[in-house]
Design a protein around this nucleic acid. Structure first.
Length: 476
RNA sequence: CGGGGUGUAGCGUAGCCUGGUUAAUCGCGCCUGGUUUGGGACCAGGAGAUCAUAAGUUCAAAUCUUAUCACCCCGACCA
């Protein structure tokens, strides 16, 4: 899918639109509904894992950032900074009233570690207060130079989970738990295959000891998309904000933290991964509409069938919509709903009335089924929804595999990337300078370090011996 | 911030080089009426644009000149 097709698809399916500010988009009902489904699913997973939702403020004072700089050398980039509070009129034009300059600048959150950890100090006194497992669904702003619908917006919606623990061991265990949580939603619900691993030092979140990431590639282009990240904060933020607790021995000791997130970028990933010539193919479990019912003629018998079907679908928790606008021809409707990626079309016309059936067409294969209308019809429908869910995951996974290559030398790497974009596995002797050189030469970056083997191998770039295996990819 | 490009109706565009009954073409979409309706229907009619903004050249500017602004693509930044 080229960029134009991607943008066209988002616009024609009413998922999102541009706003009048560069890099900031409007998420329309159909798109928001996808996000909302992701949210509902992940919220359940969070609750199961004992997380509590809460909300921290949008604006953060500068003095907190100053603290982080002092201790961890974090320099915030790409922030929106609020400096004034008032306008005045000059020559019939609105201008910022310089007299209204704020004593201290406020920063719109690019992420919330700052405001959360500075608050935790007051919430955590004893080992009995730990662990603290919190999550918030919110928007953040990171002013980027270059933008792309959902993949890189200046404002995006996300979930940020934060956990604070009494020991290093417990914090690391929590990271394992979060990995499972993300694996579950990405694979079982969004049907997105992925690779996982640690970010290089250069790409690690500022203030984190390590960053663990989930990466995938797009259908045609084979470009990399980062789906989720988990940061192990160690006791770094505990040091900055002096978040300490009294342990069972009566000693005051530091806390250990993690933070992690998934964002509306996932919508972009879904679009880029699940599509064909006819448009989107949404995974049934997050599709805003799972079934579109299309009566072909305006007829009382059909109306009766629809009422009957409605009842059954509602009882089986299948989301559906009925399009009984007869001013639009069937062909046009078929194209429209195919484009929107609705998993199943149910068609009812004269033939169906005669045979007491409905015609079912699944979006992924366009296979047709004729189902008898009776109380058990939902069983077959659920089966097909499930089958679509599984099939699109398997297909995406196969595709990712065929787009994953192994290279031994930089020379063969260069040769191959000219032909195929994708994931490139190789051995790597850690060196930030070389990392940058590779990026400049090829536009490829190290997506993640996937494992450390026992055997030593030659680094594909420096020829030094190493046991580190990495995946390279071309990012959006 | 560097290099390139584009601004004409809700969207996509023609016209610009060579200024003149062109206050603007065509397609999609929208509205009204009718005939249609099993994979993007057709006919008839209709609404909708101070041609990005500002200044200049000229008898005359969408068209030429200058400035400004916005957006897009390619780099640096990046969940």
């Amino acid at each position: 899918m080229d960029d134009k097709r991607y943008i066209d698809l988002i616009k024609s399916t009413n998922i999102a639109d541009y706003s009048d500010i560069k890099g900031i988009i409007i998420i329309k009902p159909y798109g928001y509904s996808i996000w909302n489904n992701i949210k509902i699913i992940f919220d359940k997973i969070l609750i199961k894992n004992k997380y509590n939702n809460l909300y921290f403020p949008l604006l953060i004072s500068k003095k907190l950032f100053q603290l982080e700089y002092k201790t961890l050398n974090i320099i915030p980039k790409e922030c929106a900074i609020v400096t004034h509070s008032r306008f005045k009129i000059n020559n019939n034009k609105l201008i910022v009233d310089k007299k209204s300059k704020l004593n201290e600048e406020l920063i719109i959150r690019p992420t919330s570690e700052t405001v959360i950890w500075s608050t935790l100090k007051r919430w955590i006194q004893s080992y009995r207060d730990l662990p603290k497992l919190i999550n918030q669904w919110c928007n953040v702003i990171r002013l980027e130079m270059r933008n792309k619908f959902f993949i890189r917006n200046s404002e995006f919606l996300w979930q940020e989970g934060h956990s604070i623990h009494s020991s290093k061991k417990e914090a690391l265990l929590e990271i394992k738990k979060v990995k499972k949580m993300y694996k579950k939603i990405l694979k079982n619900y969004l049907c997105i295959p992925f690779i996982t691993g640690y970010k290089t030092f250069k790409e690690t979140f500022l203030g984190a000891k390590f960053t663990y990431s989930f990466e995938t590639i797009t259908k045609e282009k084979g470009k990399s998309i980062q789906l989720a990240t988990i940061h192990y904060l160690s006791n770094n933020f505990s040091k900055v904000y002096n978040v300490k607790y009294t342990n069972i021995m009566g000693k005051r000791v530091c806390t250990w933290g993690t933070s992690w997130g998934i964002s509306t970028r996932l919508i972009g990933a879904i679009i880029m991964i699940h599509n064909d010539k006819k448009g989107l193919i949404l995974p049934p479990k997050i599709a805003p509409i799972q079934i579109i019912i299309l009566p072909l003629i305006d007829n009382y018998k059909i109306k009766r069938i629809i009422i009957y079907l409605k009842d059954i679908l509602k009882k089986s928790n299948i989301t559906f919509e009925i399009d009984d606008n007869f001013n639009i021809t069937p062909g046009k409707k078929f194209y429209k709903y195919d484009n929107m990626g609705i998993p199943i079309k149910l068609i009812i016309g004269i033939n169906e009335i005669r045979n007491n059936t409905v015609e079912l067409i699944r979006r992924d294969t366009f296979q047709k089924y004729y189902l008898y209308i009776n109380n058990n019809i939902y069983i077959k429908i659920l089966k097909i929804l499930n089958s679509i869910q599984k099939r699109i995951y398997i297909f995406a996974k196969k595709r990712m595999r065929t787009k994953t290559y192994f290279v031994k030398s930089f020379k063969s790497f260069i040769k191959k990337i000219n032909r195929n974009c994708g994931f490139y596995a190789t051995y790597w002797y850690s060196n930030s300078k070389n990392e940058l050189t590779i990026q400049k030469l090829t536009q490829y970056t190290i997506r993640c370090i996937i494992k450390k083997s026992n055997k030593k191998h030659k680094c594909f770039f420096s020829n030094k011996y190493t046991n580190t295996k990495i995946i390279l990819g071309k990012s959006y």
